Amino acid sequence: MKSLHDQLANYAAYHRDARNIATHFVGIPMIVLAVVTLLSRPWVAVAMPGSTHTLALSPALLCALASAAYYLRLDLRLGLLMSLLLAAALQVGHQLTVLPTGAWLGWGLGLFFVGWVFQFVGHYWEGRKPAFVDDLIGLIIGPLFVVTEALFMLGLLPTLRQRIEAQVGPVRRGGSSALSA
Rank of each mutant, 00 (worst) to 15 (best):
A103R: 12
I31E: 03
G93N: 01
G169V: 08
I137T: 12
V46Q: 11
V36A: 14
L81C: 07
S83Y: 00
A87H: 05
R163G: 08
L65A: 13
A87E: 07
W125Q: 10
P100E: 15
A131P: 08
W104E: 09
I137W: 11
E165R: 14
G174F: 03
R172P: 00
A45I: 12
L74C: 08
A150E: 02
G79A: 03
A89R: 07
G174M: 04
L38F: 14
H123R: 11
Q162G: 08
G127V: 03
K129G: 06
R73D: 04
G127S: 11
V98C: 14
H5Y: 14
A103C: 07
V92L: 15
L57M: 11
M1L: 08
D134K: 14
W104Q: 09
P29E: 10
M30E: 02
A89W: 09
S67R: 04
V146L: 06
G93C: 06
A60L: 10
M82D: 08
A47H: 09
N20D: 05
G155Y: 09
F145H: 08
N20I: 01
R128N: 04
G174Y: 01
W107M: 04
L80E: 03
R173P: 00
V117W: 02
Y71S: 06
S83G: 09
T97V: 06
A181K: 04
G108E: 12
R16I: 01
V35P: 07
A45G: 15
G106L: 07
G106N: 09
M30G: 01
H123V: 14
G169R: 06
R41G: 10
V35W: 14
I141V: 15
V121R: 11
L72Y: 13
P59F: 08
R163C: 02
A12N: 12
P29G: 07
H15R: 05
L85H: 08
A22T: 01
L61M: 09
L84N: 01
I140G: 02
L55S: 07
Q167V: 07
I140S: 13
A66M: 05
S177C: 00
G122Y: 00
P49N: 06
P49R: 06
A34P: 15
L144F: 05
L81V: 15
A166G: 14
T23V: 04
Q95G: 15
K129T: 06
Y70H: 13
L179W: 05
A178T: 00
L86K: 08
G142P: 01
A88T: 12
L74G: 08
L111I: 00
Y14A: 11
G142S: 05
V171T: 15
R161Y: 03
L74M: 05
L144I: 02
G108H: 02
F132G: 09
A9W: 09
W107K: 04
L109R: 02
Y11P: 09
V171K: 01
